[in-house]
Every structure is written in C-alpha cells, then in structure tokens.
Simulated scan of single mutants.
Amino acid sequence: MSLAMSLILLAAMFSTLPTTHADTGFIYHTCEKTKNTTMCVAVLRDDPESAKTSTAHDLASIALQIALNTADHNGAVIGDLAKKSQGTPQGDALAVYHKAYVGAAMDLDIFGRNDFDGGDYAGTSNSLSVAKGASDACENAFEGIGKIPPLPPLIS
C-alpha cells in the first residue's frame, strides 16, 4: 500500500506526462519512479481500472482508491479482532490499531481524496503523513505488549 501512496505523490510531479493508454509499459515507466517498481506494477496491474487510464494522475487516483479500500478492509478486520480480544493486552493494542486505521481511512477519504482531486498535492501529502502517524501508533501499541502487529503498516 505504501507504494500506492508513493505513486500518488508522484502524480503531482509527473502529471504532465503525455497522454497515453496505460499499457504495461506506461504503468512500468510510471512505477519506476517509486521505491519498489515491481510491487507498484503488481498493485496497479491487478486493478482493472489501471488499463483504462491515460495519465500518471489517473494511475495515482487509482492508487489512492486502492489505499482507501485497503485501509477500510484492514480496519474492519482489526475491529473484529479487537472485539474478540476485549479485556486483554492484545485487545487493548488492537483497539488502538483499529482507531488508528479508521482515523487514517477517514482522513484519506475526506481530506486526501478532496485535496488530490482539487490538485492540492501538499494537502494530499499531509494526509499521507497523518496515515503514517497512524501506522506508528499501531506499531507502538504492539511493541508495548511485546508482540508483532497482525497486519503490515498502513504507510511505511
């Protein structure tokens, strides 16, 4: 997911790329600008909407949607785990984890999406920073009880 987020930031820098159909080469060349080209390509090629895009900005929009969907899904999974573990140290850590994921998803959905769609990439970047803080809170909650979080960080 963090690579999808990296692509969002790249859209601000590369949205002036010439319009082209998002074939594998276009996706690959756009993803080359991320920290992990292979994962970026795999994530975007796995989404059928990517093949319909015509700009790096369109790919970044898809990446943002993937990130939002992942945060929503993971938040639901963590919420279920937290309910099953109430009253235990792991349950408390999962409750922190759940709150962080829900908050990050809401921030990305409300502010990140609006900022991105409005061309405010600095605002989008701020939402990504908030999501990174949520990931840190999750890791700290589990570190406090000496366990590994059940899911990878939202943003790394």
Rank of each mutant, 00 (worst) to 15 (best):
A42N: 07
M106Y: 11
A42F: 07
K84D: 14
V77F: 05
L59K: 05
S135H: 04
L7P: 04
Y28P: 00
A134C: 09
H29Q: 13
G25F: 00
A56T: 13
G118Q: 10
I148W: 03
A104H: 12
F142G: 04
T37C: 07
S135F: 05
P89L: 05
A137I: 07
G119H: 05
A67Q: 03
F26Y: 14
L59H: 00
P149T: 00
K132L: 12
G103S: 11
D120E: 12
P152M: 10
T53D: 08
L3E: 10
K147M: 15
F26Q: 03
A76H: 11
K52H: 10
D117Q: 13
C31W: 08
V77P: 02
S85P: 00
T34H: 00
S61N: 12
D107I: 13
D107G: 10
D72C: 03
V130Y: 13
A60G: 15
S127T: 11
S129N: 10
C138E: 13
G118Y: 05
H29S: 13
Q90L: 12
N140C: 02
I78G: 04
F111Y: 10
S127L: 10
I8M: 15
I8N: 04
D23N: 14
S129E: 14
G119V: 05
R45H: 06
V102I: 14
N126M: 12
F14N: 06
L59S: 06
E143L: 12
L68I: 15
T37G: 02
D46E: 14
G91C: 06
D46I: 02
D107V: 09
L64F: 00
D23C: 01
K132S: 11
A122I: 11
R113W: 04
K132G: 04
T19G: 08
T70I: 07
I155Q: 11
A141G: 10
Y28L: 09
A141S: 15
T20C: 06
G133A: 13
E143D: 11
D23F: 00
D107R: 13
T20M: 10
A60W: 00
G25H: 02
A100S: 08
I66R: 08
C138H: 03
M13G: 05
P150R: 07
H57G: 06
A60D: 01
K84N: 13
A56W: 12
A137Y: 07
S6P: 01
C31S: 04
S50I: 01
D107A: 03
L17I: 05
G91K: 05
L108N: 05
S15V: 01
F26G: 02
I27H: 02
A122T: 12
Y28C: 03
D120W: 08
A137M: 09
